[in-house]
C-alpha cells in the first residue's frame, strides 16, 4: 500500500468498501455506455442536419426512436437501482454479529476513541488512532461533543455522520492488515481540513496486545528528566484539559494522553509523532494547526524538554 492509496475509496481493504467499489464499477460502465450512445446519436443527427438546406417539413418519424430510448433509459436505471439497493442491504449494520464495540466521539478537531467493555476498568481510551483486528466485524458507535462531524475511512467503508445528541451505529471490517488514513468529511469549522485519524488493522494477536497496553495505567516516570516532566505536566495547565490514567490529571476536554508516546501521529494525524514535533506542538499548537483550541504554552526550555521526555515515555 503506497502512501497515496491509504485514503482511497478505490482501494478497498475490507468487505464493505469492496461492495461499494463493485457498485461503482457497474455504475461507471453503464454511465459511460449511456454517454457514448447519446453522443453517437447527436453526431448522426448533426451530420444529417448539416447536409440539409431547409429543415424537414415532414412530421418526425421519431416517436419510435423516442420510445426506444426512454425504454432503454428506464431499463438501465432500474438495473442500477437494483444494484444500489442490493449493495445497501449488504452494508446494513442490522443483524451483524460483532466482536467488539468502539465508541468514537468527534471533537473540534480530533477524535476520542474508547474501547467499550462490560468491566468499566477494562475500558481503554485513546485518541486519533483506531486499531482494529483483521477479519473481524467491529461496531462503531458514533457521537459528537460539539458540532456535526463525519466518520470516513474510505478504504473500509463509506461515511456516517457524528451528530450531537444522537448515537449512530456503524459496522466496519478490515480484511487486509495495514495503515489507513481517515478524515472528517462534514465541514466542522476552522480546522475541518486537519481533523484526521489513522486506522491500524493488525492481526488479532497484535491487536489484543495493543489493547491490553491501552487498558493499563500510564507508565511511572523513571529518569529524573521524566519525573520533572510529570511535575511540569501536573503543575501547569496541561491537566486542565488532558487526562493521564494513573495520575491526578483526569480532564476529558482534550485527547487522553495515557499512552501518547505510542501514537504515530500528533494533532489528529497531521504530523508524525517525534521529539521535535511534540515540542513544537506543546509550545505552539496553533502554529501547526491554526485555530486549534489548545493554547500556546510558553514553558521554560528545560521544562519543555522534560515534559517531552515524560510524554514520550508514555508508551
Amino acid at each position: 500500500m503506497t502512501s497515496s492509496s491509504y485514503q482511497d475509496a478505490l482501494h478497498p481493504a475490507g468487505p464493505y468498501a469492496n461492495t461499494i467499489v463493485g457498485v461503482w464499477w457497474f455504475y461507471l460502465i453503464v454511465c459511460t455506455i449511456v454517454f457514448v450512445a447519446v453522443w453517437i446519436a447527436l453526431f448522426i443527427a448533426i451530420r444529417r442536419a448539416r447536409r440539409r438546406v431547409e429543415p424537414d417539413t415532414l412530421a418526425p418519424r421519431a416517436p419510435r426512436a423516442m420510445m426506444l430510448a426512454l425504454a432503454a433509459t428506464t431499463g438501465l436505471l432500474l438495473a442500477m437501482l437494483v444494484s444500489s439497493i442490493a449493495g445497501a442491504r449488504a452494508l446494513s449494520p442490522q443483524g451483524k454479529a460483532v466482536t467488539r464495540e468502539i465508541q468514537v466521539t468527534g471533537h473540534q478537531w480530533w477524535w476520542d476513541i474508547q474501547y467499550l467493555d462490560e468491566r468499566s476498568d477494562h475500558i481503554a481510551q485513546t485518541a486519533n488512532e483506531l486499531h482494529v483486528p483483521v477479519g473481524e466485524r467491529v461496531r462503531i458507535i458514533l457521537a459528537s461533543s460539539d458540532v456535526i462531524h463525519s466518520f470516513w475511512v474510505p478504504n473500509l467503508h463509506g461515511k456516517r455522520d457524528l451528530i450531537p445528541g444522537q448515537k449512530s451505529i456503524f459496522v466496519i471490517q478490515a480484511d487486509k492488515a495495514g495503515l489507513y488514513r481517515a478524515q472528517c468529511a462534514e465541514f466542522c469549522g476552522l480546522q475541518h481540513a486537519k481533523m484526521a485519524f489513522i486506522v491500524i488493522a493488525e492481526p488479532k494477536h497484535d491487536f489484543e496486545q495493543w489493547l491490553a497496553t491501552m487498558r493499563a495505567s500510564a507508565a511511572q516516570p523513571k529518569t529524573a528528566d521524566e519525573q520533572r516532566g510529570q511535575q511540569v505536566f501536573l503543575s501547569t495547565s496541561c491537566g486542565m484539559c488532558h487526562a493521564i490514567k494513573g495520575t491526578s490529571a483526569g480532564s476529558r476536554v482534550g485527547p487522553d494522553l495515557t499512552h501518547v508516546g505510542s501514537r504515530r501521529t500528533l494533532g489528529a494525524a497531521v504530523i508524525p509523532n517525534n521529539r521535535g514535533n511534540l515540542s513544537g506542538w506543546i509550545a505552539d499548537a496553533g502554529g501547526v494547526k491554526p485555530g486549534v483550541l489548545m493554547p500556546p504554552n510558553p514553558l521554560d526550555p528545560d521544562d519543555l524538554h522534560a515534559l517531552v521526555a515524560y510524554l514520550e515515555s508514555l508508551k
Partner: peptide, 14 residues
C-alpha cells in the same frame, strides 16, 4: 445517478 445510490453516496458524499 451515481450519487443517488446510497452505497456510492456514502463514499462520495462531501
Amino acid at each position: 445517478v451515481m450519487l443517488a445510490s446510497t452505497p456510492l453516496d456514502w463514499q462520495l458524499h462531501d
